[in-house]
Design a protein around this nucleic acid. Structure first.
Ligand code: MN
Ligand code: MN
Ligand code: MN
Ligand code: MN
Lengths: 218, 218
DNA sequence: GAAAATATTTAGATTTGTCTAAATATAATA
DNA sequence: TATTATATTTAGACAAATCTAAATATTTTC
């Protein structure tokens, strides 16, 4: 009925990895993500398979079952709601909340989640622009283009980030490249892909690596 | 540096038990409280002793070291702050919060605790009247008399409860015997210790067992 | 399509926390 | 004080999650 933190983390990681690149997820990919050894991943995949939470074929990778998806999405829901709580109510910065939410997402109380959701005003997005699944696990998928794919003259709004490390988010904060900001691409350098752009009437120059993780709605 | 949930729960239980009846705490008492076997308690006491969190003498019982008290009080602080959050902000009833707080108390983020404390307005008491330790672990000990020790004519205010089960708290709620209520003892029955009292201008009759867990400030 | 490189699994060990059954110590009773 | 009852510890086993090293599969490269 209830699952260990470890099982929940595996399900969540498998969910995120299969979102990122549709199809089955590989053992080593999971091991990298979860900071563990491939042998440990194999052990856990067998266990989750026994519990019918994943479809696992030896050497062929893994996908979540419907039940597995349900559990994973619920953890994502909790993670993102807690992040909203931390930012909106406790005045945390968007770069300070992820680690704490990694713990809070495992608190097991359906009624708590529903009341928290209500308390927060049923938010649709978390502090990083990611959509929050509703109580039925339904959410809109974010429509976006990576800033690194834009061309001179393109305009848009910052709607998300695909890298959540504190260092990266702090950097964006400093640049003023936060959610909701309107941007316009002034130039994309041929030799290194660095981007010159306009934000809040200021000219800015960012590397391709930084641009690659900024999600833009045109 | 950091401790497992299990270790934290043992420290908390030992702390509560040594408050309840000053002196050393016995192995079987802990086993009863924590729903485990005495042999398991012995194992854990050895481990906590190795970590210098308890003073443990074979067959003689256990006390917390200064470091052990510090950790235990911090967990109690978190538990009670989260209970206030659940009641004040998420509209839970006082009988619904304990189990959830049992999970939340293990969230490990000092800055979260401080911000939560501030968000709640630095409350001094939790929803059951128990004092909340401040960031230094300091708190006032509740001054009270058990209602079952009062005599005819005694007056006072309900300031706490010594039994936190949902069933008991719901029962008090129904009787209108909640925190802050002024009461007056009308009669104490000789044969069964049941108590007749006045609350909010209503006459009430409660058993000795119920009265025993109601804490009164005269 | 064989050889080499990479990915994955298996076997066996380790740590944490728990348990049962047996042994031992302490406390109560007579 | 000897006997009995109660409390506690020890010994040995077990489940969960992990690890290392070795074995096996798959994929890539020539
Ligand atoms: Mn996050
Ligand atoms: Mn987020
Ligand atoms: Mn409580
Ligand atoms: Mn309480």
């Amino acid at each position: 009925m209830t699952h260990s933190f470890t099982e929940e983390n595996y399900l969540k990681i498998i969910y995120h990895l299969s979102q990122r690149s549709a199809g089955t997820v590989q053992t080593n990919t999971i091991a990298d993500e979860i900071q563990t050894k491939p042998a440990s991943v194999t052990d856990m995949l067998k266990k989750l398979s026994d519990k019918k939470l994943v479809n696992y074929v030896k050497y062929q990778g893994v996908t979540l079952t419907a039940k597995g998806v349900e559990i994973a999405v619920n953890i994502v829901r909790k993670h993102r709601l807690w992040e909203v709580f931390l930012v909106d109510k406790l005045n945390f910065k968007w770069d300070e909340v992820h680690e704490i939410a990694e713990e809070l997402e495992h608190i097991n109380s359906p009624v708590l989640v529903e009341r928290l959701d209500k308390f927060l005003g049923f938010p649709k997005k978390d502090p990083h622009g990611d959509p929050i699944p509703d109580r039925h696990g339904i959410f809109e998928t974010l429509q976006f283009t990576k800033m690194s794919k834009l061309q001179t003259g393109d305009k848009g709004i910052v709607v998300g980030v695909s890298e959540h490390s504190s260092a990266y988010l702090k950097h964006l904060e400093k640049l003023g490249l936060t959610l909701g900001k309107h941007i316009e691409i002034l130039e994309v350098a041929d030799f290194d892909g660095s981007v010159e752009l306009n934000v809040s009437n200021e000219k800015l120059n960012i590397s391709r690596e930084v641009a690659r993780h900024i999600l833009i709605k045109k």
